[in-house]
Amino acid sequence: MPVPAKLRVATTSLAGCFGCHMSILDIDERLLALLELIEFDRSPLTDIKHCGPCDIGIIEGGVCNAENVHVLREFRANCKTLIAIGACAINGGLPAQRNHLSVSTILNEVYQTQHGLVGGFIPNDPELPLLLDKVHPIHEVVKIDYFIPGCPPSADAIWKVLTDLLAGKTPELGHGLISYD
């Protein structure tokens, strides 16, 4: 019997802390079993810079700047199934705690008026992506197929969703695996 082709999986962290990626690695030795079934495309684990056609895309973090939006759209255009992982991707999380402040107030506070700062200035390099006025969960920008809540989700929750998907089932997290914190 021919060996079935491995599913291609891409991952990225937008306005996140990489904690969800740490939790992906936290599935430990089960990673070896997983790697029999999948191969990674664009991901911090491979350092591939752009996403090619993939079966599954996993997005950590919300969108806080213009580059995040471009990356998110690249993933949506290339991934058959897109998964939001973690609080920030799902509801904005910690970065979204700035949403009741204006961007100019924040930039002034951080780079110019903060106590102890001398000669600070607001960075304005064309290489730097421009900030959005608010941090948004990713489902407000593109369609998301599945969500894994948690800050971060546990390795067991991630494992459950991935193995359900690989088995062709709708992922389900019961008590103990579904968590918002």
Partner: peptide, 18 residues
């Protein structure tokens, strides 16, 4: 929300200032 399997907020957030 856990009991009812709320996996996402579905709607756009208001982000009110309170």
């Amino acid at each position: 929300a856990y009991e009812l399997n709320m996996m996402s907020p579905h709607f756009d957030h208001f982000f009110p200032d309170r």
